[in-house]
Amino acid sequence: MRINEFLVTNTDDYEDDFGHKHGWIELFNTSYGAVGIGGCYLTNDPANLKKYVIPKGDATTKIGPRQYTIFWADNMPTRGTYHLNFTLEESSEIILVASDGRTIIDRIKIPHEQIDTNVTYGRITDGEGSIDGSGEGWGIMERTTPKTSNITAEREPAHVVVKRMDPFGIIMAVTAMSVVFCALVLLYLSFKYMGKNAIRKAKKKLESDSPNSPATGNVSDQEESAEQLAAIAMALDLYFRELEVHDFEYTVLTRNETPKTYSPWSSKIYTLRETPVKISKR
């Protein structure tokens, strides 16, 4: 979680559920998983890190991945979970503290002299920048952006940028083909060495097996060439085909009727003599 943006003096900006305008602090979940902030603390006093405890029982304090939430700095904690017991006008710093009450997750000093009324101070890029209060990566926002990204400029979709930068697709082709090759070269190298290792192991096994048990017929995988395997497969295939032809099942002989009306068995090509050739007279 990060403190992402805050508004000190609010006279004409975002309103709370009661229709009142107050300063606010935006928190941003920088992770790609939901984060529960119940039990954490928000404070404006480094000497009192447990000034405001975010209630644990509130289901809304579980912040979704890359989502934002807002706390009202109105000094009215009785109005709900999101209303703090201090205001920003009277504060010099905002500190987010972990649920242990000691670990500081994020802090930022409030540069009152720079911030006008209804103007927010925030991280230039959401979630990025200092967490030690120095203000690195922070700045005055062009617009207030409560509960949304601080980047207000319209972003070009990635594919538009890609087309603008690489109108002929050459850079994309070269880069993408390189990535594909890298992935498959890595696979190639892994399995090349794994294969060598497997062959070496098989040879060792063969050497250790053969002098001790020559008559057992212990044959390793490496001994069987593809031709041998093909011959075994062919023999098995023929064997099973033979079973099929005879249709021998449970010692009962049956006859399989073929749906083809014209089979090699009834083919005249195979059963008749060649048609005599008529020799024409000149």
């Binding site: 979709p157 890609v162 087309k163 697709g169 994309m172 070269v185 696979l187 190639y188």
Partner: peptide, 29 residues
């Protein structure tokens, strides 16, 4: 495993068609 590399080379079709599609006015996506 060196046959894996052929599987990579044949992906050239994807990027060849990508380049031609760009020339025909399709967006990059």
């Amino acid at each position: 495993p060196k046959l894996l590399l052929i599987g990579a080379a044949a992906q050239l079709g994807i990027f060849g068609a990508y380049a031609i599609a760009l020339l025909l006015g399709f967006s990059a996506a």
